[in-house]
Design a protein around this nucleic acid. Sequence first.
DNA 1: ATTATCTATAGATCTATAGATAATGC
DNA 2: ATTATCTATAGATCTATAGATAATGC
Lengths: 238, 238
Amino acid sequence: MPQVNTNPTPGLTNPNLSGSRDIPTQVKNPELVLRRRRQITDAAVKLFIDKGFHKTTTRQIARAAGVSIGSLYEYVASKEDILYLVCDSIHEEVERGVADALGRAIGGREALAEVLREYFLVCHRMSDFILLIYQETRSLPSQWQKRVLANELRITGIFIEVLARLTAAGDLPNLDERTIEIAAHNISVLGHMWTFRRWFLSRHYRIDDYIRYQTAFILGLLGQSGRESRRSRHKEDK
Amino acid sequence: MPQVNTNPTPGLTNPNLSGSRDIPTQVKNPELVLRRRRQITDAAVKLFIDKGFHKTTTRQIARAAGVSIGSLYEYVASKEDILYLVCDSIHEEVERGVADALGRAIGGREALAEVLREYFLVCHRMSDFILLIYQETRSLPSQWQKRVLANELRITGIFIEVLARLTAAGDLPNLDERTIEIAAHNISVLGHMWTFRRWFLSRHYRIDDYIRYQTAFILGLLGQSGRESRRSRHKEDK
DNA sequence: ATTATCTATAGATCTATAGATAATGC
DNA sequence: ATTATCTATAGATCTATAGATAATGC
């Protein structure tokens, strides 16, 4: 369960800041709002990853964002607002990463293995961010907590679709809906596991090895993603 | 990733408070120290689960524990000390739970399924506590963070042993060491998943169903824990 | 005398805002 | 005039401790 922060953090690209819509501001110019909020979010995410939400002060955020504390409060109404912007922006990035990954992986036969590989690589790249969500979701007001959970569910939903499609195409054995649902949650979480057990796993496995082991593990249940590999498994059985 | 707290929390039995040894105190009488620290830990764990570590004040803890704020600081040197006592006490309880569970489950053939079942039930019972560790480990001073991680690893180690034993006994196919290690981590984490995705899972699955699906998933890779079930799988393949 | 406990508070923050100032556009 | 920004600080905490008090044992 443990969570430790070791890697240097790459920046968020932080595309649309769509959660921005939910938060009122004193400032009229919408582009300005977006731009400043991006500054604020970028600064905050680094600080939160580094010291955690509660140990980061609004002054530090303002300073790192290059605005005064007074200005900061023209763009958000509270420190929690900033956390929400941060969480939302992370989810946007993860989701984009996952969607891209799915785009790249369309092979029919080994499709699932490809999807897994791309997803695990996203988790690897976004390690710090995913960890932050695990640790600080709870500090959000419950209204926004729900939104973060919904985001989480949407990402799991992507895997449900992939599994359903592969099942329909005959690339996976017939799995009932709930088996698919649980498998999709497992995939999400085993990706996250690389982030929240990084303190152990990254000392003993390289990400590629991790992906190989996990792929084998996941394809285990699912009867493996093709007739060919299924055949080789029977051999092993003998 | 999301974490929401809904269930009512049962108390910790909080056996030895072994982490107690690591923390200095002003008070000479060792039994008294143990007793007061138990009061403090019991009060704190409830408050932390309810409001989180940072939003709980030392005064609230003192009050709930039935001691004055002055006395509180005779037994710990800082608020973080309390968090450490809490985390340690939770691990002790989880580990005891897991060990008990292993005791109860010794059938040769379906051994793994039994172990999984007992472990998942422990996670179910200790849901709130496990979630707390996920969320607040980070707030510990790094020296104690390491200790929490070591505890985590010890629990995973139990599963490594079980898997190794079953492999040696021929109840599982031949799995290499690293496959076993990753499988053990997966088992730990899929148990925790029930706690940190409870907001979704417990609305759609009862714990027994969850256990069934996860058992099927896990036994998938491992070639299933007996010849019999392996045979039935071949049938499905056809 | 020693040990445990309590009350009262020092001292250090931290969030959020009020009110002044600068910049922009009519 | 309106919009954006800044400085200075009110007001509210919160952790941790100092020093007084009570209880226990020699």
